[in-house]
Simulated scan of single mutants.
Amino acid sequence: MIWSDMYFRLKSPSGDYYDLPPETDFSDLPEFPEGVAMVYWDYYHDEKKHYDNYIKLHKKLSDQTLFAGGAWIWNGVAPNYSWMAATLMPALEACRENGVSEVICTFWQDNGAETPMTAGNLSLTTFAEACFSGENGLQGEEQRVNGDYMEFLWGDGREAWWLLDRFDNVPGAGKNNRYADNPSKFLLYQDVMLGLFDEQIRDLGLTEHYQRLAEELAEYRSRHSGAHVLFEYYEVLARLLEQKAELGIRIHDSYHSGDRDYLAEAEKNGIPACIRLTERLADLRQKIWMEECKVFGYEVLDIRLAGVRARLEYAGKRLAQYLSGETDCLPELEEKRLVYAPDQSDGSHALCSCNFWQNIVSAGNIAGI
């Protein structure tokens, strides 16, 4: 197999993969090797017309064309099922109509493989159902796999799996989370004293969002004693985000308004609660990793989650120093908070995507150094 962007980018003035017009001529390119299949990969488009055009372009190069769609488990720490479904259905419909009979569901693991492999079960089943059902054009709720079938295959019904989509498909995200916003990742890792993403999420109500999500996950687990450990892991993550998502905002605002009572409450109760949840999260993530993967690679997540705990402990110490009079100023809280990545093209899109851990934990990462 050869993934076709190596050919298509040669014909694009910008070096892009997805901007070729239907009349593109490939006759000046090297002949495609005999016996090698061309893979058209596309995880980013939700219109069948685009896929139709691109399959036809691929067939100009090779009569052995495969399609690779995305499970979207690389959004960060939680799957992006909404965008998986929105891109998958028109793609597979186009494949069926254009005679592409072989397709691949990809499980990329960008930036640390933070989303458990098991979280891709819904994507796999949705993919298979769309391939073998013979039905075209299923969209939105209609395409979601029958709950009994999901439970038969994986032990948990579809309603439970779709709860995981709500970690990143939150108020302020684009339709179907088309921009791959991942607040569950950047709010998990961001430093509460530095608040790099605080203005990005201000007034979106994410504390209440994650509280409701945690309650629904807990309610599901109470009714299904045999639920996969994955759902306990995500319940703990939701409870941690409920506590931590806006903690930095409240600390910052209380510092500037002189609300020492809240700062004392955060130092005594809020931060320790986050630390306990982080420890439980790390234990569960380790258990899931060892069930799914070789040991190699877990050191990355171990270091990252230990860093969350360490920076929470630091925040507690700094607040204690301020409240005791050991220091009369916290420079971390003096700096003006800015919106991390404003979207100038879509006024309804308030959130952002940041899938590189090193860009979340510090503003001091300049050019990767």
Rank of each mutant, 00 (worst) to 15 (best):
V103W: 07
L138N: 06
L122D: 01
E114Q: 14
N121G: 08
F107W: 02
G137N: 14
W108P: 15
Q139G: 06
L124V: 15
L124K: 03
N111H: 13
A130P: 00
P116K: 04
G137Y: 13
G99M: 04
N121H: 13
G134M: 02
D110F: 08
N98Q: 14
G112Y: 02
L124Y: 07
F127W: 10
P116M: 02
E141H: 06
D110I: 10
A128F: 10
G112L: 02
E129R: 09
A113W: 03
C105F: 07
E135T: 12
G99V: 02
G120D: 03
F127Q: 03
T118I: 12
A128M: 13
N136E: 13
F132T: 09
V100H: 03
F107P: 00
A119C: 05
S101E: 14
G120Q: 01
E114D: 10
G112S: 04
P116H: 01
Q109P: 00
V103M: 11
E102F: 13
A113D: 05
A128L: 15
S123C: 06
V103P: 01
W108E: 12
G140R: 08
F107T: 01
T115M: 05
N111R: 12
T125I: 11
T115I: 01
N111A: 14
L122F: 12
T126G: 13
T125S: 10
V103I: 11
V100G: 04
F132S: 07
A119R: 00
E102Y: 14
N121W: 08
F107E: 07
V100F: 05
S133M: 03
A113Q: 06
S133C: 09
T106M: 11
G112A: 04
D110Q: 10
N136M: 12
E129N: 12
A128Y: 11
C131V: 14
L124Q: 08
W108F: 11
Q109H: 08
S123W: 04
A130D: 07
N98P: 03
P116F: 04
N121P: 00
V100K: 04
M117L: 15
T125H: 08
M117H: 09
Q109F: 05
E135I: 13
E129P: 00
N111I: 07
E114M: 14
G120E: 01
A130Y: 06
F127G: 01
C105D: 08
N111E: 15
G140I: 01
Q139M: 13
S123H: 06
L122Q: 01
V103E: 09
T126F: 08
A119H: 00
N136T: 10
V103Q: 09
F107C: 05
L138V: 09
E102R: 15
G120I: 05
